[in-house]
Write a protein that binds this DNA or RNA. Sequence first.
DNA 1: TGACGCCTACATCAAAAGTTATAGTGGACA
DNA 2: TGTCCACTATAACTTTTGATGTAGGCGTCA
Lengths: 257, 257
Amino acid sequence: MPKLRQLANRPDCPPACTQCELRKSDAFSPVNVGQLRYIEAMRSDRAGYSAGSQIKLENQRAKALFTVYSGWAFRFKSLSDGRRQILNFLLPGDLIGLQEQFSDGPSHGVDAITDVTLCVFPLEKLWDLYRDHSNLAYSVTWLAAREEINVDENLLSTGRRNASERIAALLLSLHRRATHLGLADIHDRGSIAFPLTQSHIADALGLSLIHTNRSLRKLHRAGLHLIEAGRLVILNPKALERLSEYYDQPTRQVPLI
Amino acid sequence: MPKLRQLANRPDCPPACTQCELRKSDAFSPVNVGQLRYIEAMRSDRAGYSAGSQIKLENQRAKALFTVYSGWAFRFKSLSDGRRQILNFLLPGDLIGLQEQFSDGPSHGVDAITDVTLCVFPLEKLWDLYRDHSNLAYSVTWLAAREEINVDENLLSTGRRNASERIAALLLSLHRRATHLGLADIHDRGSIAFPLTQSHIADALGLSLIHTNRSLRKLHRAGLHLIEAGRLVILNPKALERLSEYYDQPTRQVPLI
DNA sequence: TGACGCCTACATCAAAAGTTATAGTGGACA
DNA sequence: TGTCCACTATAACTTTTGATGTAGGCGTCA
């Protein structure tokens, strides 16, 4: 049973939307009371998944939309012989399951990397949201577009960057996203918790595990980054940016549903 | 000057939305009169681009949304040394420029493959559409989600399929899309017009031109497909599907804005 | 009609990435 | 406290893919 029991007792259980810890971060655009109440009413449940568990099977249609409240997860597709491609990583604030609503069949799986807690929104209420709150509908499209931009970037990596460049771009991108969420430790060189294994990195970048290991160590030996005790430190952001041609853009506030 | 002159005289110039040739295809969900009128009012212009011209530069923010009315185009990202990754191909009915509305900067370029005609919608009217016509807003999200599904599939190809598998998946996918639009010639083995060069295929699949050529000929020699006189024939769909693990799903009607 | 450019075809060699095998490390757990 | 297991590290070798060079076909256009 992947779902955590006694979710309500866990410190990272999503509370009422008015108490949402995530929304307190200035990473997200403010919403008015009416919108917040609508979101709260639309949310049917909370769900917890333990690290490594499957949130959605690849061949299964999602029965709901989810917003990641805490933890890291990823979307993936795979081939029958086990080859797996991670499409993008999901961090707090990311929406899960929108594609399914509009596709002709199930298209991807979702796995938890760390323990993950989710806010659950029944699929059938999505249409109501479009009807009743156009500004929230606009936000949903925003989140969809932002996810596609992430996938686009990852496609540029797997298609045209070499192994070191791919890794540099991924590390920068994840570091930027986590920092934007306020997850960076300013007392420790801006380090972020980094729960990915080399296997995740390999599957996200279309590399073999061994080659990922080789290339990671190369960057590490060159002093560009440091992964230690489950945390990532970007030691030489300029060099990583030059190498990958991935440049941090100042990130605006984004919507949170 | 990439834009075609005297667009209104061309046979493929988008007419009034009530006369839209594209909408006559049963590939698209019907809309009611009010919606159609709203779309017509929202459309500010028509635009034509000649084959090979640039519809949107990579470092330029789009000033409008476009719907492809006729022709083929593609979205791409590139690196400074010229490496280019095609993100997805755009066929009639596809929406261009949605990502830009929600991103912090320009993210990708768009080039015309064939002569292309577009319907132009001013960006600032997008918000009005969300406010005034929630069903059309829903359609916009639908189109965004569908595009991401295409990019996801392409990412699986570049990340985890080998050269032959990638090509097989791409050929099947493009053939399916064109056929759904009613562009297949039932009197010629279901062939479709195929304007891509091997260079396009290479850039879409993250392969070199040479290796693309090698792999294409391999599939061709095995009798799986045929590209001749600018047309593509799928000779052995079952074998291509087995090879690529890309399976055609029956495609529902999709929205058209 | 002939020059030009774009596209395709193909051979050779080089580099990047994948495969296999082995071992060390450190946490989880009995 | 030792065993197990997931993760990381490394070497040796193979395969895939890319780079370079060369040539032929074919349509465009002056």
